[in-house]
Design a protein around this nucleic acid. Sequence first.
DNA 1: TATTGTTATACTCTATAACTATA
DNA 2: TATAGTTATAGAGTATAACAATA
Lengths: 154, 154
Amino acid sequence: MIVKAGRDAWRLLLDLFLEGEPHDRMHEVACEVGLSPGLLKALVDLPGRGTRMSDLAGHWGCDASYVTSVADALEARGFVERAPHPTDRRAKSLVVTPEGTATLEHVFSLLYEPPRAFGELSAAEQRQLRDLVRKLIEADQKVLPAEVAEVRSS
Amino acid sequence: MIVKAGRDAWRLLLDLFLEGEPHDRMHEVACEVGLSPGLLKALVDLPGRGTRMSDLAGHWGCDASYVTSVADALEARGFVERAPHPTDRRAKSLVVTPEGTATLEHVFSLLYEPPRAFGELSAAEQRQLRDLVRKLIEADQKVLPAEVAEVRSS
DNA sequence: TATTGTTATACTCTATAACTATA
DNA sequence: TATAGTTATAGAGTATAACAATA
């Protein structure tokens, strides 16, 4: 059951992400590595080797033709390469180059750097927060499939 | 000082907002009220009565000409109206109409509805989470001005 | 002369439709 | 005939530059 404190917690969390220091993190990181936010998101969200470009469209929730232009842009920067599908000669997949991997590592090191405000919490409080968010994520993963089932049955 | 648990907490929080149920909240709400995400953000982020359009450009971090088109779009839907500045006849401000206010209330009621995962936390845990995030926001507000000062001095 | 909001124009992001090669 | 990726084209979103009114 969600109590008032829970509602307040969510609201505060939302405020933190919509207005505070964390807000522009994705945008800053994109600038830093010279990619548009959309291209950065694509690079970060690239599934493992062997995924067809057509499946990427589904994964990203965009049109197939847009996958082509994203692939062109990332390839032009040397971050990915097109690779042929082993058995289906119509299909291609995108593989991350060493340069792309290095960029991704840089991206994550920037993205995962906590906002300074975290330093104002005691070590015990940081542990508490980690445990609570972990629980939330586990619950989220439990809840999501249930929602999919709901949509299917309606 | 930020300890490992704090880093993990931030990383988990980021995962929650980038991938979990909360991720598409803004987008869903925009659909629900028939605004593009950009227009919704503008409406939500509209400062109080009397703010000049030129100041909105600074506030939103966009060009002044874009403020004009945002104003046109929101005015076309009846959510805001242009009002003359009391003393400077060059300037105008945007005021939210009753219809705009009603829409905003609807928007916030949707936005502030906690993800279902919150219900998996006990009442005590929800209170704990609220207190921690509250602390984080207070620290964030303390940290932000310091950063502005840094930028100024560099 | 500088500033406010607007217009005209152009560039980026993303989608739709038509096309080529392969299944 | 259907599917994979591409191309051509069009629509949003956003910026730059030139403009009219006012300060």
